[in-house]
């Protein structure tokens, strides 16, 4: 393997994405889950940028740019919600938030 191949970044992307997914599935702290979501978004960005690199396109990079912008918005709202949750419930345990049931 002398050259940088597409498989390289694909495996990196897949690994980070799955680590993020496992984190979301196994952790209970809302903040950690939130960080895992950010990790998953970044993993997807790697794929986009990697394919853009492979095919000499820029569309992938544009997409990644939009994803980062949306991620920023999502982070603001998500953290705002976490703050509100902490104030109201005094907890960051996701299992104690069960209002969706009703």
């Amino acid at each position: 393997m002398n050259e940088l191949m597409p498989e390289h970044f694909m495996f990196l992307s897949a690994a980070l994405f799955i680590i993020g997914m496992v984190g979301v599935l196994t952790r209970r702290n809302v903040l950690v889950i939130f960080m895992c979501v950010e990790l998953m978004l970044t993993a997807v960005n790697i794929s986009f940028i990697g394919f853009a690199w492979e095919f000499s396109q820029l569309t992938g990079q544009i997409f990644a740019l939009f994803i980062i912008a949306i991620a920023a918005a999502e982070a603001v709202i998500g953290l705002g919600i976490i703050m509100a949750l902490t104030r109201q419930r005094d907890t960051v345990d996701i299992d104690e938030v069960r209002e969706l049931r009703q």
Partner: peptide
């Protein structure tokens, strides 16, 4: 390739550490 593998390795390990 070496650099890439190194960077990815650190990224993956620290991601695993994160969770």
């Amino acid at each position: 390739v070496l650099v890439f593998n190194l960077l990815s390795g650190i990224a993956i390990v620290s991601a695993a550490a994160m969770i």
